[in-house]
Design a protein around this nucleic acid. Structure first.
Lengths: 140, 140
DNA sequence: GTATATGCAAAGCATTTGCATTAAA
DNA sequence: TTTAATGCAAATGCTTTGCATATAC
């Protein structure tokens, strides 16, 4: 679990504006991965005037600063994940409702690409996506 | 390795038009995963009048028919993969130039999500993405 | 001949950008 | 007071759609 985003913004010496407070606040609690629209919806609940452009700009700045991770492993809009710890992490996704959860799978260490299939790519990183159906969607 | 797309179109009783011939032809050879624009570029090399809308429409029809697989595991436009065999497959991706290759990793069988982390999702499927840098990009 | 595929141009999202205005420090 | 952040509205990139025209069967 990470330190709150707002604290990390402050530590970077960035200006603390009401918008940034609202945007950072959107990630408080159980850190789900949010779309820009999710973030805007949550931020606007606290600060109705916050603009979508500012949400996008701020999310991008945070990604560039390494304080958010872009999760772009599934169809639809990009998601943002405040959990940027050292160990890469992975996801479980309900293909029906789109719910997305962080997960730390077992057996990662055994994964490898046979050299003959690497096409000259030096592998730096692995991302695993488990797809399935969540209980709510199974029950209709 | 799959049978040529055009043959599969014919077998479905679909009309064989010059456009469909050109679009199917784009996937001949080593089956890279192509974007719609890639397909359009290749198809237009053979049939200059083919429209991008037709490329999109045709790709979607082929996806719905199960003759193409959408690969939507990375940023940027969706890619289409003519290799729709039973075994799910995985990808190696150069994060610099965007090259994408199919891969059959070892160690897949050992991958699992601890029950406590499943958030009620019944896992049906796994997709693995290896990210790295290809030789060309490393050498500049 | 008839059903189906095509092309165009317009519309739809998600996202980015330019620039004048506002506000944090 | 200065520098940086915001909001707007317009632009972008990818993809879809409606509809009249063309064409495979």
């Amino acid at each position: 679990m990470e330190r709150p985003l707002l604290e990390r913004i402050r530590e970077r010496g960035w200006r603390v504006t009401p918008q940034r407070r609202a945007i950072a606040g959107a990630f408080d609690g159980d850190h789900v991965d949010l779309t820009a629209l999710d973030v805007h919806r949550r931020a606007a609940a606290v600060l109705p005037e916050v603009s979508l452009a500012t949400v996008y700009n701020t999310l991008n700045e945070l990604v560039q600063a390494g304080e958010l991770r872009e999760v772009d492993v599934l169809p639809g809009p990009c998601r943002y994940d405040p959990n940027v710890g050292p160990e890469p992490h992975h996801h479980v996704w309900c293909t029906t409702c789109g719910s997305l959860f962080d997960v730390r799978p077992t057996g990662l260490a055994g994964l490898a690409v046979p050299a003959a299939q690497r096409h000259g790519v030096e592998v730096a990183d692995v991302q695993v996506l488990f797809r399935g159906t969540c209980r709510d969607c199974t029950l209709h």
